[in-house]
């Protein structure tokens, strides 16, 4: 029961990531792609959490923490680059 529900939600999150991938590829301007990247990484944090539950390894959550940190820094740095160059 619980595992089925979790599996269904993992599939829904994968679909969401595919939708953001569409925006990432199509997005008319560079900031659009950046927004898509942001949403994609935050969604994959949830997916990494679910994968950690499936394989019952807490070490995957550390991966999620570092991944979130790097995505946050990446978004900030690229936006500052948009604003006034490197």
């Amino acid at each position: 029961m619980v595992n089925t529900l979790l599996f269904i939600s993992a599939i829904i999150i994968l679909l969401a990531i595919l939708l953001t991938l569409y925006r990432f590829i199509k997005g008319p301007t560079a900031p659009d792609r950046l927004v898509a990247f942001d949403v994609m990484t935050v969604s994959s944090l949830a997916l990494i959490g679910l994968i950690a539950k499936f394989s019952s390894r807490i070490i995957y959550l550390d991966v999620a923490i570092v991944y979130g940190l790097l995505s946050f820094l990446g978004v900030i740095i690229v936006s500052r680059y948009f604003e006034r160059g490197l």
Binding site: L5, L6, I8, S9, I12, A16, L19, T20, S43, A46
Partner: peptide, 18 residues
């Protein structure tokens, strides 16, 4: 599990809005 499902639905709606 229901909360996880709800969260994934919100993620999907966010992507749809995007």
């Amino acid at each position: 599990a229901v909360l996880v499902l709800l969260g994934s639905v919100f993620l999907f709606l966010g992507a749809l809005g995007l």
